[in-house]
Amino acid sequence: MKPGIKLKSTVCDTEVMVIRGSNVVVECGGAPMSEKPGERGTLNPGFAEGSKIGKRYVDSAGNIELLCVKAGQGSLSIAGAPLQLKEAKPLPSSD
């Protein structure tokens, strides 16, 4: 993975775009995400809090940032550690 790449969940509808970070395996619903997923697996109930469209998700070290571009039932993690919702700092609309 690298910035600009889209990853799809293999267990739900979730899709993310990589904003920051590279070369880690991102999981959704407990299963590794893929650029071209094959057959759909089953959602791990431990990672089923959902991913929200338009929200940003970061790891605790702040090295990885993902933008959810399609919502799904699975929640995001890396090596089993859940990703956190990033707080938005709104800017005034300029156009």
Partner: peptide, 23 residues
């Protein structure tokens, strides 16, 4: 595409407007 998308994603929060708003 990368230039324009970086600008929008960096400055606009998705779905931050409510349905009554208009530009």
């Amino acid at each position: 595409h990368g230039n324009l998308l970086s600008y929008i994603l960096g400055t606009v929060e998705f779905a931050s407007a409510d349905a009554a708003e208009g530009a």
